[in-house]
């Protein structure tokens, strides 16, 4: 690490073959995730009748739309080397605020605006504390998680169901893709968000600066980059994504409850890691995170098709996958410990 005699090697032969030019090993996990997704799907298709039906694939998106949205926000945060533990709690708070304000008779558009504003504000506050007080993101967002969960119960301890007609019609509306396959508006929103995120993270100065901050924050500062703006910005984005995911979740459940989305932050982090993003920051892809979510989704689908396997196998499977991908990252990235 100190002499130029041992330069860091980041090339992987596989990557080089795939693009024909110098491609870092960092793409390999994403490809592996894709291969895994195809494999898992293939296993399902081979073993269960009806697994290959278009609607199963569509359901994969429908059932995980909110997770996709959260994972997108989480990708931004993790690329800068941070972490956001508050996402699950913000999702719950969003469902709660949405349900309660709808019950109070507020018009749906206003409710949406309110929730989005609340999510971004929470993210902004956490980002400000993280950046200006230099407290570890882990602790700050943990406090954010407690705060958001607690606020849920301040709004109400019981589950509140959503009866607003706009929300209900939006939730139940199906967009037919073919004769037998249809998706919901949630999927459209989630995929649109993915597209926007890909553009922002990979093509704009804001996005590239996020990578720079994740690579070396002190260097980014000395390079004269707007580190503060980006570091705070990613938490605002994550907060906003959590709020959007919260709205999608309330469409999915048609209720608001303080115990919604418990542990969802773990699923989001797992998806992001499985999608090839390094938790140490600086490397990652939005599309990788999308693939990560889909892999988790396929596993759940497989287990539900299997029928006799209990739900806890999902957790064990996710844990095992995490392990696999983490070990793979070590092999391909050869990062310093």
């Amino acid at each position: 690490m100190t002499t130029s005699a041992t330069p860091v090697k980041g090339k992987a032969p596989l990557g080089a073959i795939l693009r024909g030019r110098s491609v870092p090993g960092r793409v390999v996990p994403v490809i592996a995730t894709f291969v895994l997704f195809v494999l898992l799907f293939g296993v399902g298709a081979a073993r269960y009748e009806g697994f290959t039906s278009g609607q199963v694939v569509a359901n994969l998106f429908i059932d995980n739309a909110f997770l996709i949205v959260i994972a997108v926000g989480m990708t931004f945060v993790i690329v800068t080397g941070g972490i956001d533990l508050s996402v699950g709690a913000v999702v719950a708070l969003s469902t709660m605020v949405a349900a309660a304000s709808l019950r109070a008779g507020l018009p749906a558009p206003l409710v949406v605006l309110l929730v989005l504003l609340m999510g971004s504000t929470l993210g902004l506050l956490m980002g400000l504390v993280i950046h200006y007080f230099e407290i570890q993101p882990f602790i700050v967002t943990l406090a954010g998680m407690f705060l958001a969960r607690g606020l849920c119960f301040v709004v109400g301890v019981e589950s509140i169901s959503i009866k607003d007609p706009t929300f209900r019609s939006f939730a139940t509306a199906a967009i037919p893709l073919s004769q037998n396959v249809s998706i919901t508006w949630s999927v459209v929103i989630a995929l649109a968000l993915v597209a926007v995120a890909v553009w922002v993270l990979h093509r704009t100065r804001f996005g590239r600066t996020a990578y720079a901050v994740g690579g070396s924050e002190s260097s980014a500062t000395l390079m004269g980059l707007p580190v503060a703006k980006v570091k705070i910005g990613v938490y605002v984005i994550s907060g906003l994504c959590s709020a959007i995911a919260g709205l999608l979740f309330s469409l999915y459940m048609l209720s608001g409850y303080g115990l919604h989305a418990v542990g969802m932050e773990l699923d989001a982090i797992a998806s992001v890691v499985i999608g090839g993003t390094l938790l140490s920051g600086g490397v990652g892809y939005v599309l990788g995170s999308l693939l990560g979510v889909l892999v988790l989704g396929v596993i759940q689908t497989l287990i539900s098709f299997q029928g006799t396997l209990s739900s806890w196998w999902t957790k064990i499977a996710i844990g095992t996958l995490l392990l696999l991908f983490i070990v793979m990252q070590r092999v391909f990235m050869r990062r310093q410990p």
């Binding site: 704009t204 100065r205 990578y211 720079a212 690579g215 070396s216 002190s218 980014a220 980059l225």
Partner: peptide, 27 residues
């Protein structure tokens, strides 16, 4: 060396003042 090891040489040289097209960085 105060650069970002995870980015490309070009990005390290131009980060913060890259040529842009339609608001996006023109790689």
């Amino acid at each position: 060396v105060n650069l970002c090891p995870n980015l490309t040489v070009a990005e390290n040289i131009l980060l913060g003042r890259e040529p842009r097209r339609f608001g996006a960085v023109d790689g």
